[in-house]
Design a protein around this nucleic acid. Structure first.
Lengths: 157, 157
DNA sequence: ATGAAAATGAAAACCATTATCAATAAAGAT
DNA sequence: ATCTTTATTGATAATGGTTTTCATTTTCAT
């Protein structure tokens, strides 16, 4: 029954333990917020959201935890052109589909797309294999973003 | 005779004029530095290089000019994980081949690769076309980066 | 329950990038 | 060549997201 609200430990706790990290209330809350949105949240966005439930958790902890999560591969960190970094939960067990981004350089709006992912993924797989061998790299991740002007910004000028 | 040191106006001057911008000594110097390296320079790197020849040119101007160049499409701006932005001349008339990046998350080393570019470019072209139509986006650019651990960093831990 | 070590929060520090503004230089007109 | 307009520049200060610091609190194996 995959969609059910489980009472047991959330799936990500094992991940923390596996890395030798402790499970804490702030970490729980932060992953919780990330897992309930499909938006690209900034550290402050997450702070504000967490703050509603746990007002005592500070922004510093948000940053520290996010860094940890990125390092664990549980979260992706993006730069979309506005100054702040954006964070997204990497695909979890019940996760949404893997997607790439379409970024408007006029208004910094970001569209997630999944439409052409399959072909991309296949090519990426081959490319990764080739690059790994040639450069002795252990590839763990990739970033694909298209930049351009959204409809609204095309008309602006 | 494409490889010759021309005495006339460098090729990029027309580009500035075309945008209604003036051609100045600092701009000349900055594009000059970028056109003579294949490294990924930070604003400060460029400042230091320019400073050797024109000690009066300030860092502010470097930033302003880079922003201009990026906006003109003459320069690409990248974020490789160390805090500073990195800049690269977009392919010019005598430019090097278009390339993508392989970024080590251990030491922030960046490798330019061109090996698998052709297949990637073709797929990207199709994807761009599809995305443009579906989302009404005017796509002007793309970013592809692979992340992982270089040989040295794999052995470290 | 207990204690060692990890994690946290408040505040200060950091530092790449931007904004300000008076002085300078580019480019067309004279 | 000089003048005039206006973009551009440089020094300085300000900005603001992110990190550091360090004393306090919390986790979790025992």
């Amino acid at each position: 029954m995959p969609g059910r609200k489980a009472k047991g430990a959330p799936w990500w706790q094992g991940r923390f333990r596996g890395y030798g990290y402790r499970m804490t209330v702030p970490r729980e809350a932060i992953v919780g917020v990330l897992s309930e949105t499909s938006k690209h949240l900034s550290a402050e966005d997450i702070f504000l959201e967490v703050h509603k439930v746990y007002p005592s958790i500070g922004l510093t902890t948000i940053y520290r935890t996010l860094e940890l999560l990125v390092q664990m591969g549980l979260v992706f960190k993006f730069d979309f052109g506005d100054k702040r970094a954006r964070y997204e939960l990497a695909e979890g067990p019940k996760g949404k589909r893997h997607h790439h981004h379409l970024v408007c350089i006029g208004c910094d709006t970001v569209i997630d797309y999944t439409d052409f992912i399959d072909e991309e993924i296949e090519l990426l797989g081959q490319t990764e294999k080739g690059l790994s061998k040639k450069f002795n790299f252990k590839i763990t991740n990739h970033l694909i973003q298209f930049y351009g002007l959204c409809k609204r910004c095309q008309n602006k000028k």
